[in-house]
Amino acid sequence: MIDVLIIGSGIAGLEAACNLYESGKEIFLLEKEKNVGGNVQNWDTLFPDGKNARDIISYYMQEIQARQITTYLNTYVTGIHKCVDGTFEVHTSRDIVFKCKTVLIATGYSLFNAERKEEYGYQIYENVVTSADLEKRFAQQSKNQLPNGKPLHRIAFIHCVGSRDEKSGNHYCSKVCCITAVKQAIKMKQLVPDVEVFCFYMDLRMYGPGFEEKYREAQEKWGIQFIRGRVSEVAETLDKRLQVKAEDTLAARPFKLEVDMLVLMIGMESQASTALFQKSCGLKCADSRFIQPYQHHLDSNATNVKGVFTAGACIGPLSVFDTINHARSAAISVSNFLAE
């Protein structure tokens, strides 16, 4: 019987694994993809200081290798079952049943599928991309051009795509997209100094360290324009540019804008597997479909099921550094539970 089975090997799972290993627990890591790292692999740089995301992943890779933590790749969970003695049986796609004392869920989030907001034309119009797509382009350094080779003159970012949006069923804030948009907008300006950048927002939530300063810098130093108002619809022109219809709600004025590229700041959604856990072991979920922490303040890693813990964005949108902190606290919570 192992001590802790960690589901998910994104930064949350990896951080928790290292900490639990240090405290002498026997642990296994499960990962549904073919390599570890999770969503952070798709990122180029991280706010607020522009740290390279690949550095974070390689750091954790080294840590895991150094400790020889057993990791099952290409393995996903099909059900968590609680036994009468309080231990768990975790069934997986590999027909292996893991018996463990505790389960640590570190499955993170999935990105909102922007095709569901059809009015923005993602996957219909060539030059509509998501924030995740843009990050990949940054990583490949193919930034200052459109895919068809034309230069960029003007781009726009749309905030809150699939967040704070009752119509798409997600009424919550995804927390990180505001600062990500600021980060990406500045990056665009750095790469293509002549480009005009517009951000369409509802509210700007600059909650973290250095965020507000970044936002100020974006306006003062880089001349990025922030317009309060949601975009209503997007149409493609003959030369594949995009015509954006929006309203500047501060000026109470509707207007149109033609841009070369449109970036959709997609939000976070609960993983499909969360619903599976909910079904198989009665895990309680919030209205947002993310896992409901047992107590927000004093016990945010525990869940309503004794012995099942959470680490990272499976409880709701979190930034990278919040995730790492949450994973560390998860390790402490699990250790305390096992000591009892």
Partner: peptide, 9 residues
């Protein structure tokens, strides 16, 4: 239909 560009196209 403008809000569902897939149909328009």
């Amino acid at each position: 239909t403008h809000l569902t560009p897939g149909i328009k196209e």
